[in-house]
């Protein structure tokens, strides 16, 4: 598929690649030699997981212009599938292999669930799609609550703490790279055209149905990956974790950082995660900050910090002369 191919020449993104390589080394050594306080490491990992979630939701809400409020459902699918795999099915194998396989399987499962949601619900748009996705996440929650084999409402545990800083770093970079290349591919342009004017998109020959499905499946895949990472970090999941509040958190991060922007997703996820940790002394009141933030945001900066703008190092014209490229 053409979106898997890097958008530019090999050497073009050399500085970006160097930073990524350095970051990975840093993540490895931090985890290996415990260079940072465990709590700081936890927050860093949460930032990464939240970034994957934000990118995933931004693909649907920001780039495609639809409105999903049920992404916690896909996260739950990924979390439960990967946890069941690592605890029950693959437990006898070496964790070195179990973990990546379990997380990947969780992502794929979420992708399949995403496809199952997309097929019927893309007959609707806008508000209606929002309601369909909301209903979907409620279905996921109550289905899990009623399956006793995975603990029902009590939750599921037994996962080893397999999520480490290098793994989170790896999946975060993968998410940024794949989603960025997807957006700047031909399919990505199709996604943008759906957001801009679906009728005009139809008239230019874009198969809007396929394009929307593909974007939705990619989005739910990454929500599932984030779910798998989360489950093996916190080592406990329950249906209550993946409720409407979780979906709202993702919405806040998307709209805080900026719709239709990868750099915005980074800013949104990092700011929100750090802010939530910094406000811990407020106790339960810190949860009031989130909706308040959303209200203020909608009044003063409805498109978010980076709305529809992209950092230069993430855009395809990076490393080229301005305006001369074709």
């Amino acid at each position: 598929m053409d979106f898997m191919r890097p958008a530019g020449a090999l050497g073009k993104y050399l500085p970006v690649k160097a930073v990524v390589a350095l970051g990975f080394m840093l993540a490895l050594s931090i985890a290996r030699f415990n260079l940072l306080d465990n709590y700081i490491q936890l927050v860093l990992m949460l930032i990464g997981i939240n970034l994957i979630l934000t990118l995933s939701l931004n693909l649907v809400n920001g780039y495609m212009g639809e409105f999903s409020v049920g992404h916690a459902g896909f996260m739950a699918a990924g979390a439960y599938v990967s946890s069941i795999l690592s605890v029950r099915v693959l437990a006898s194998y070496s964790p070195v292999w179990v973990f990546p396989c379990a997380v990947l399987a969780g992502g794929l499962a979420a992708g399949v669930v995403g496809l199952a949601v997309a097929v019927p619900s893309f007959k609707t748009r806008g508000d209606y799609l929002a309601i369909v996705t909301l209903a979907f996440s409620m279905i996921v929650k109550s289905v899990i609550e009623n399956i006793d084999a995975v603990g029902g409402p009590r939750g599921f545990l037994g996962m080893d703490k397999l999520t480490t800083l290098p793994w989170v770093f790896f999946w975060t970079v993968a998410a940024v790279w794949i989603i960025r290349n997807f957006i700047y591919s031909r399919f990505g342009r199709g996604v943008l055209s759906v957001r801009e004017d679906e009728i005009a998109a139809d008239l230019t020959g874009v198969n809007t149905r396929n394009v929307k499905m593909l974007a939705f499946v990619v989005s739910s895949f990454f929500a599932g990956i984030a779910g798998g990472l989360y489950a093996h970090l916190i080592q406990y999941i329950s249906p209550g974790v993946f409720d409407i509040v979780k979906s709202t958190e993702m919405l806040v991060m998307v709209y805080l950082g900026g719709v239709g922007s990868i750099a915005g997703s980074m800013i949104g996820a990092a700011t929100y995660t750090v802010l939530l940790e910094a406000l811990r002394p407020l106790g339960i009141w810190r949860m009031a900050v989130m909706p308040l933030l959303l209200i203020l945001l909608m009044i003063f900066r409805p498109k978010g910090i980076m709305g529809y703008r992209e950092a230069r190092w993430l855009s395809p014209s990076f490393g080229r002369g301005t305006g001369k490229d074709k």
Binding site: L192, S193, E196, A201
Partner: peptide, 20 residues
């Protein structure tokens, strides 16, 4: 009904979608 937030380039490339 051009795509107002997309560049001229993107608009034209979308027009060539069926032959891409």
């Amino acid at each position: 009904r051009i795509f107002c937030n997309l560049s001229v380039k993107e608009n034209l490339l979308l027009g060539g979608w069926v032959h891409a």
